[in-house]
Design a protein around this nucleic acid. Structure first.
Length: 850
RNA sequence: GCGGGCGUGGUGGAAUGGUAGACACACCAGACUUAAAAUCUGUUGGGCGAAUGCCCGUGGGGGUUCGAGUCCCCCCGCCCGCACCA
């Protein structure tokens, strides 16, 4: 008997799939389509177990859908722009392009042995000019449609590296690379008008039933809808109004000051003539904007000397302060402060000795405000003091609504939906990204490139201009032959935009590009109409907000600009967020008691090779620094891809983390060996050999078909695998005849095929299966074989199990009850009496209440 | 602070309100072997018992129900997301 040799089997069947071109996605008139997509990888150069788990899950779905008669699109590409390539160029020399494409080649080579059902003919990288050229075309169309605009915005500026940093690249107020104090700087940047769609993006979440509730909720909170009112306060100096936004206008009576953002036009206007204000504003700009720092930062302010009139109590004047806690880009950039009913305002008022005036009190509360503001919940009843809207003794929410009505009716303010979501700033002062296709001309201003000039390719070194990544700043700024171009409109000397696009732009539409990856337009109508939307998207929860929200925005923008068919509003019909692959950490201590980490392969039975015992730290995300990584290539080399695929799916539900253990991987390998040897044994059986229990085996087989199908369809891969273990054991122990065993092993091969396609092909071929198991139709469970003639029902007495009864499955309830009452256990419990109640749930349980 | 989730054997985890602990790991025992490995067979929530069995058991406390890991209320612990959002 041949032994199980994954390296032979896997190479052979991968070649067979390639030869038949079975994974080539084709539009088909008579088959339903299915588009399954895993979040594409960044080409770091190495695949890790997380990739293996992610792509295996997608592969299971893709292969299953293929065998259930779908025309499947299952593509793969590379999210290839971004800082790591530039950092590598700085650290080790060379060019980001070379580094990236070398990594892609490496990773493709590592991925192929996994035997994924990917249509590699559609592969692209976002740094291919063919891809980002179409992205530039898309950008120009969005610009024309008013979905992109330029404005001044504050950014984190690293003065040493001379570049903008994302918030997460600022650590303790310093640049993560340079260590320099990060400054706030105002730059003119490009923005996508995503905030215009905030309401739509939020309400449409309700329709995404096949998204995890958690992700929908996270997006909902991120978009952050609140209903409030915009109230103009008239300045006493006659210079117009200052608009304040409030969601609690019911506290208006208690207003004792207004506070504007340091970036508010009013503040800026005063800055020039008032050195104290200017100093304060400058200090605010330097302030660290990270969340933690913001939380700790002291609420500070300066009185501008300006006064405004209370919109209702016209005899009251309120001072105008500049407050460091007021955000310019939320609401109107100005708020009114009501210390009695808002803790932050109260703290501010106490600090600067501003009046505290109640607007209402809550029943049972002291009217006098101490150190704690009176903040009623919106459903809480409040009693008003002299309230202008003419309501009293109502809930806070009713008071808010009445106040907004009153303000609108008297032309004092305007109700408004306010969203937390800001516009998406896409400009990056970086080289390795998609160039923004516009030109700046002294005469014509900002001029879009002509589409026939696309792609605007990044300059490489071909024209002799060296691109040096070791000088801080953006190399594009220093590249005259690229930067200096004639204006596309007037032809005069002009300068190209040297900012590139945020890499999140690249990943916001790649799913659509996969439907026509070689087209000379961003998409092709027929292909997009056929393949979109993505039926199943799979990836990590870490993209719950940014990537998934941006993609939803792009799907809408592409529809507006005619690049996606009407109706394809949502990019991803179903989303699945998979858990991570984790591993124990092995640690010893050095002479200074600092931790030293050890690779799993260097640890045997909790000891290093020299016998030193290691401390075992419980499972954590695989990370190079903690050395708790397992290299997929090593696993494939020792056990084969099928073992790696099976194991990452087997132990935990897909949405949870799975712990990689050496013993688990080995057990999987043993199991696959067992399946292989069962197959060999059956193949060696005498033709026509008969045995007992054929029916039992076939019944178990149909049950397995039913259960595994259900498991695969519901992302219960671990449960499906548990059923496969069970069925394998049944087959292993079965005394059935040759025909039944042969049918069972072939069905087992089919049911395993989505997870272990190579071994399945081998078994399928061994037993004379037609063509490939990959293309064979999925087995169907015979309903008649799923029900057995008898059923064993547990008998409970007062809810406690006291016995069981095996009865014909179709026996009627009255008869079951009679037999149950006659059992010894029940008779004993009744002790001559009659039961109070008897519950018979057919096929489930009998409960006797005595 | 706000929002969400989770808590089940030694471990990972199963259980449409209906036999809690499927399946796997680990452990233990047995078969085979001169021996080991591999393979195969079996045991394994805790307690009591010679035994048919009995009692306890899903973080803690209460409730609904014939019946609760599952539903409701309170509490404890852990995890995640958001947060100067007016």
């Amino acid at each position: 008997m041949a032994t199980y040799s994954p390296s032979d089997i896997e190479a052979r069947w991968q070649a067979a799939w390639d030869k038949e071109d079975v994974f080539h996605a084709k539009r088909s008139g008579d088959k339903p389509k299915y588009y399954v997509l895993e979040m594409f990888p960044y080409p770091s150069g190495r695949i890790h177990m997380g990739h293996v788990r992610n792509y295996t899950m997608g592969d299971v779905i893709a292969r299953y859908k293929m065998s259930t008669g779908h025309s499947v699109l299952h593509p793969m590409g590379w999210d290839a722009f971004g800082m790591p390539a530039e950092n590598a160029a700085m650290a080790i020399g060379g060019h980001p392009k070379t580094w990236t494409y070398d990594n892609i080649a490496d990773m493709r080579g590592q991925m192929k042995p996994l035997g994924l059902s990917i249509d590699w003919s559609r592969e692209f990288a976002t740094c291919d000019p063919e891809y980002y050229g179409q992205q530039q075309a898309l950008f120009l169309d969005m610009l024309a449609a008013g979905l992109v605009y330029r404005k001044n915005a504050q950014v984190n500026w690293d003065p040493v590296d001379m570049t903008v940093l994302a918030n997460e690249q600022v650590i303790d107020g310093k640049g993560w690379r340079s260590g320099a104090e990060v400054e706030k700087r105002e730059l003119t940047q490009w923005f996508f008008k995503i905030s215009d769609m905030a309401g739509e993006l939020k309400s449409a979440l309700d329709g995404l039933e096949n998204w995890p509730a958690k992700v929908r909720l996270m997006q909902e909170n991120w978009i952050g809808e609140s209903r409030g009112i915009d109230i103009p306060f008239v300045r006493t100096d006659g210079a117009g109004t200052i608009h304040c936004y409030s969601t609690r206008p019911d506290t208006m009576r208690g207003a004792s000051f207004i506070a504007v953002s340091p970036d508010h036009p009013v503040a800026k206007a005063l800055e020039a003539d008032n050195p104290d204000l200017a100093a304060f504003i400058a200090e605010c700009r330097k302030m660290d904007t990270t969340e933690a720092a913001m939380e700790k930062a002291e609420k500070k302010g300066v009185d501008t000397g300006l006064r405004v009139r209370h919109p209702v109590y016209a005899d009251q004047e309120l001072p105008v302060w500049i407050g460091n806690f007021v955000l310019m880009d939320y609401g109107t950039g100005a708020v009114f402060g009501c210390p009695a009913h808002d803790q932050r305002d109260l703290d501010f008022a106490r600090k600067y000795d501003l009046p505290v005036q109640n607007a209402f009190y809550m029943p049972g509360e002291e009217v006098e405000v101490g150190d704690e503001a009176l903040v009623p919940a919106k459903t809480e009843k409040v009693a008003f003091i002299d309230h202008f809207a003419g309501v009293s003794d109502v809930t806070s929410q009713e008071a808010i609504d009445a106040t907004i009505d009153y303000f609108e009716a008297n032309d004092l303010g305007k109700g408004q939906m306010q969203y937390r979501l800001r516009d998406w700033g896409l400009s990056r002062q970086r080289y390795w990204g998609c160039p923004i296709p516009v030109v700046h001309c002294d005469d014509c201003g900002v001029v879009p490139e002509k589409k026939e000039n696309l792609p605007i390719e990044l300059p490489f070194d071909e024209d002799g201009t060296p691109i040096d990544f070791n000088i801080p700043g953006n190399p594009l700024d220093r590249h005259p032959t690229w930067r200096d171009v004639p204006c596309p409109s007037c032809g005069k000397a002009a300068k190209r935009e040297t900012d590139t696009m945020d890499t999140f732009v690249d990943s916001s539409w790649y799913f659509a590009r996969f439907t026509a990856p070689r087209a000379d337009t961003p998409t092709v109508a027929e292909d997009a109409a056929y393949w979109m939307n993505v039926d199943q998207y799979i990836g990590g929860i870490e993209h719950a907000i940014l990537h998934l929200l941006y993609s939803r925005f792009f799907a809408r923008a592409m529809q507006i600009t005619g690049h996606l068919p009407a109706g394809a509003i949502e990019p991803f019909d179903a989303l699945f967020t998979q858990g991570m692959v984790t591993h124990e950490i092995y640690q010893t201590r050095d002479d200074n008691n600092r931790p030293v980490y050890h690779l799993p392969e260097d640890v045997t039975d909790g000891k290093l090779a020299d016998g030193t015992a290691v401390e075992i730290i419980p499972s954590a995300k695989m990370s190079k620094s903690k050395k708790n990584v397992v290299d997929p290539l090593g696993i494939i080399a020792s056990y084969g891809a099928d073992t790696a695929r099976w194991f990452v799916l087997s132990d935990s539900p897909p949405e949870r983390d799975v712990e990689w253990t050496a013993s688990g991987a080995e057990a999987t390998f043993k199991h696959l060996n067992r399946v292989h040897s069962i197959s060999e044994r059956i193949a060696a059986m005498d033709e026509g050999a008969t045995g007992t229990g054929d029916d039992d085996l076939l019944r178990a087989m149909h049950k397995a078909i039913h259960d595994v199908t259900l498991g695969v369809e519901s992302f219960g891969f671990n449960a499906a695998i548990a059923k496969l273990y069970g069925f394998t054991a049944t087959l292993h122990k079965s005394k059935a005849g040759q025909a039944a065993q042969r049918e069972a092993i072939m069905t087992l091969a089919q049911l395993m095929a989505p997870m272990t396609p190579h071994l399945s092909e081998d078994i399928w071929a061994k037993h004379g299966g037609q063509s490939l198991v990959t293309t064979a139709p999925w087995p169907k469970a015979n309903d008649k074989m799923l029900v057995s003639d008898t059923a064993t029902l547990p008998i409970q007495i007062n809810g406690k199990r006291r016995g069981e009864l095996t009865l014909p499955a179709d026996m009627d309830k009255a008869e079951v009850e009679k037999l149950a009452l006659a059992t010894d256990a029940v008779q004993k419990a009744l002790n001559g009496g009659t039961p109070k109640k008897v519950i018979v749930v057919p096929g489930r349980i009998i409960n006797v209440v005595v």
